[in-house]
Design a protein around this nucleic acid. Structure first.
Lengths: 344, 344
DNA sequence: TTGAAAGCGCTAACAC
DNA sequence: GTGTTAGCGCTTTCAA
């Protein structure tokens, strides 16, 4: 940043004009009222080009109090769900002239806190956050809210504090559909690697799981709901344990809180010769686009990330532009994608 | 950004100290030489906390001439290859205290140009660029080089201009191994959806293709090397054409320039009842981690993105920190991953 | 140990 | 139409 970039002052000196005039020309102010002689315009523009002038955004941001940047914090972009979210947000942001500052939390609240601090420090116009498990940063989020920094939660929200704007999927419905689908096939012993119930996503999916059982008039075996985190290795580790303890043999299905975890499940089952769907049903969640190519195409739930991302972004822009949002909370419906891994 | 954030001046006023002192305390300058009385330190720090002070990065950047940001431009983060690249770069950057500004080019040079302009304007400390097809932005890249803005090309480079630092995979070797593997199985009619030969990646892979043939003493059928772009729909569209024209029937293999394109190939083959590997061999390139789960696990080439990303980043940091780099060009070796789609 | 003041590059109110 | 000048919030020299 310290490499002798040309400044408007250089241009002013060279053209014999004032920096104000240069600034006006460069910003095309004449279109907005104040007229500028076309000679001046021409000379300024040409020497700007000649000198290779590129405006200094930091200076501009400082003066304008506008960073033209949006912060995006996600747990892990390697998860296809967040990957696609990021892709769409990035695309929409570019269209509106915003830059995207991307940060990871890795499901770790300290990393998330650092990222939030950085974004506030950079005075981003707004933040889109897929919060990590837990609510350790609630204080900070509340401070951000108090500062009136536009903030949209995606994918996950906080049950105990619904003052934030958020966009999520209807996970109760999604998981309930999935479990119903399995129950309908006569399978009742459904193991569920459910993630962390402190996270809204898991809480809702667990609720959906229960709902499907209660709708079917079947009692839930509590021990079948298994806590975890959200990575592939969680699926792998837990499935191995289930195999060792013999619980897999008695189970009719083993479903996962997301597609990523499901991958670990597949690995562990494969290694131990457990066949899908013959020996056990299985399913993911999130509609990873590769699942359909699998040896046993995997049943999953399509969360319609695109529409989720689009509405998260438009909510954020609404807040940034000071519009009053009619809905503070948006739930995007989701749809079951039944495939062979559940016997379809 | 205009929401009445507390400034060091507010803190100065409230504590009765000068802004210089406040600034020093906040930056922990005392550890770097200049001593500050512990009383002052204490009071400044506590009122900073009390007032919820968060430093303004733009102001800091302007004064320090340091944005503490790194720009990353990739064609498309939905390609797993770039996804992983982005993940690793982001992680390494965070460790060093840099923020990542992410931009997409979508293989479109105008979008790439806009992104580059934006990054220069933001005075990023350095840029990691996976250039899009063609060399339409060569002027700009040369200007960036002239400005001495640290720049590392990844994945792709420019044959005609090797003054840029770059980190790539050894694509000649990779593709040659892949084709040799197929030739060794007695298959000689190998269709290759090759991407755009203007792009180094494609040029090298085509070279590797030729090399394998010439090593085997077999003549290349030029029409078997098919130009394309790098998206799934390219694979799909081209394969359909090949099916219609009857060329598929005569071919022994249909390989793709990357895993993404290979997906389109799979779709088209599947829809038309062409079986893999029975009717035709196929392969991807890039070692997408899902390929091994496929109905017919897909042969591919592992490009070891992690080591590629790590060296790209450390090269960049080297440039940023003004170190002299011993190697200007790095080629990461790659390894064949043979699976059932080539009859393994 | 601390403060005054200049400067980073740009915008915008105000004057001519 | 154009120039002067006061910020934007922070760092850093130079003095005290």
């Amino acid at each position: 940043m310290g490499k002798n970039y040309t400044t408007i002052e250089d241009i002013a000196r060279k053209t014999g004009k004032s920096i104000a005039t240069v600034s006006r020309v460069l910003n095309g102010i004449d279109q907005k009222g104040i007229p500028i002689s076309s000679k001046t315009k021409e000379i300024v523009l040409s020497t700007a080009r000649e000198l290779g002038y590129v405006p200094n955004f930091a200076a501009r941001a400082l003066s304008l109090k506008n960073s033209m940047a949006i912060g995006l914090i996600i747990p892990d972009i390697m998860q296809l769900y967040f990957n696609e979210l990021c892709y769409i947000i990035s695309k929409l942001a570019a269209e509106k002239g915003y830059s995207i500052i991307l940060s990871h939390s890795y499901e770790d609240s300290r990393a998330e806190r650092k990222a939030l601090e950085m974004l506030v420090s950079r005075r981003v116009n707004g933040i889109i956050l897929a919060p990590c498990t837990g609510d350790k940063n609630m204080d900070m989020l509340k401070a951000i809210r108090k500062q009136q920094i536009p903030l949209i939660l995606v994918d996950r929200y906080f049950k105990d504090f619904n003052q934030f704007n958020y966009v999520t999927t209807d996970d109760v419905e999604g998981c309930s559909q999935l479990v119903k689908h399995i129950l309908d096939k006569g399978v009742q012993n459904i193991l569920f690697i459910a993630g962390n119930p402190e996270t809204s996503v898991s809480a809702e999916r667990i609720e959906g799981y229960r709902k499907a059982f209660s709708d079917a008039g079947v009692k839930v075996a509590e021990e079948n709901i298994i806590e975890s985190s959200y990575f592939q290795e969680d699926g792998y580790r837990i499935t191995l344990e289930l195999i060792k303890s013999g619980r897999i043999k008695k189970a009719g299905a083993l479903i996962s809180v997301n597609d990523y975890v499901a991958l670990g499940v597949l690995d562990a089952l494969e290694e131990n010769g457990v066949r899908i769907p013959d020996d056990i049903f299985t399913a993911g969640y999130g509609n990873n686009k590769f699942l359909k190519y699998f040896k046993t195409p995997l049943t999953t739930v399509n969360q319609h990330i695109e529409s989720l991302a689009v509405s998260a972004f438009s909510q954020l822009i609404g807040l940034i532009e000071g519009r009053i949002l009619t809905e503070k909370h948006i739930k995007v419906p989701c749809t079951l994608v039944a495939r062979r891994s559940t016997g379809d």
